[in-house]
Simulated scan of single mutants.
Amino acid sequence: MQQRDWTLSGICLAVLLGQAPVLAGPPAQGTPAGKTLPARTADSAFFIARSTNRNQVHYGVRVDSDCRPQGPQPVHAYWRMLEKGEKNTEPLLGREAPAYGLGDVQQVEATSTGWRVHVRLRAWPDRAIDLDVFRANGQCAARAYTLMEGRVAQIERIFVKTAWPTGVDYVLLSGTGVDGRSAREVIKK
């Protein structure tokens, strides 16, 4: 099925993530120390994969030639329609914003290595996501961080397991903590 299935899994994702526990604020200032995952390109800092099909919602940062985030809302969401081919992308539709969209406030600040953008998913307003943007190997790169298991971790993957026939069974966050240990958190109703 090549549809986005936003009506069922997306709305249930919004409900599920909206019920996530309130956690401490965003990661501490400065680049986290310890082992990190490889950086991703700035146009795909992190993504949400779902069990319904291979299509993914990616979150990218609009940057200038110096890798500085551009505009009041530099982070944006879009679909990678992998069911239609590796390079096929589509914009996020307005009706999908409650499940996959970003909050209206995006704070940008300079760091010692580049820039940091603080965002929150609309479906997950109690959990901050910080995107560090910097130059690496001649291109703009990014790493995304959030709290997993109550500690700061770099996001490797967000996976949504949909329930049959409708709804969300669970959301799995996985990544690497700033201490270098694997981090994994399952969010269920």
Rank of each mutant, 00 (worst) to 15 (best):
Q2L: 12
Q2F: 09
R4E: 04
R4D: 06
L8T: 12
L8M: 04
S9C: 02
S9H: 05
I11P: 00
C12W: 10
L13F: 11
L13H: 14
L16C: 06
L17S: 02
L17N: 05
G18R: 13
A20P: 00
P21N: 12
P21H: 13
G25L: 04
P27N: 13
Q29L: 07
Q29I: 01
G30K: 10
T31N: 07
A33K: 15
K35W: 03
K35S: 05
T36D: 10
T36N: 09
L37Y: 09
L37W: 08
P38E: 11
P38D: 14
P38Q: 10
R40V: 03
T41V: 08
D43Q: 14
S44Y: 03
F46N: 02
F47Y: 13
F47L: 10
F47V: 00
A49F: 04
N53H: 12
R54T: 15
R54V: 14
Q56K: 15
Q56L: 11
Q56F: 02
Q56I: 12
V57K: 10
V61R: 07
R62F: 00
D64T: 05
D66L: 10
D66I: 00
R68G: 00
Q70H: 02
G71E: 08
G71L: 07
G71S: 06
Q73S: 15
Q73A: 15
P74Y: 06
H76D: 08
Y78H: 15
Y78I: 02
Y78E: 14
M81W: 10
M81I: 14
L82D: 12
L82H: 11
K87E: 08
K87M: 03
N88Y: 12
E90V: 00
E90F: 07
E90A: 15
G94F: 06
A97F: 08
A99C: 07
Y100G: 00
G101K: 05
G103P: 03
Q106A: 04
V108E: 01
S112P: 00
S112T: 15
T113L: 06
T113A: 12
R116Q: 08
R116M: 02
R116W: 01
V117W: 03
H118D: 12
R120G: 01
R122L: 09
R122H: 04
A123C: 08
W124F: 14
W124Q: 05
D126V: 01
R127L: 08
A128H: 11
A128Y: 05
I129H: 03
F134I: 02
A136G: 05
A136P: 00
N137C: 05
G138H: 11
Q139F: 04
A144H: 05
A144Y: 09
M148F: 06
R151I: 04
R151P: 00
R151T: 05
A153V: 01
Q154R: 09
Q154Y: 10
Q154T: 12
E156T: 01
V160Q: 13
V160R: 09
T162L: 08
W164A: 07
T166I: 12
T166L: 10
G167N: 05
V168K: 05
D169G: 02
Y170K: 13
Y170H: 15
V171W: 01
L172K: 15
L173Y: 15
G175E: 13
G175M: 10
G175S: 11
G175F: 11
T176Y: 05
G177T: 04
D179Y: 07
D179M: 07
R181N: 14
R181Y: 13
R181D: 13
S182F: 11
S182M: 09
S182D: 15
A183K: 14
R184D: 00
E185W: 05
E185H: 06
I187M: 12
K188T: 14
K189E: 09
K189D: 11
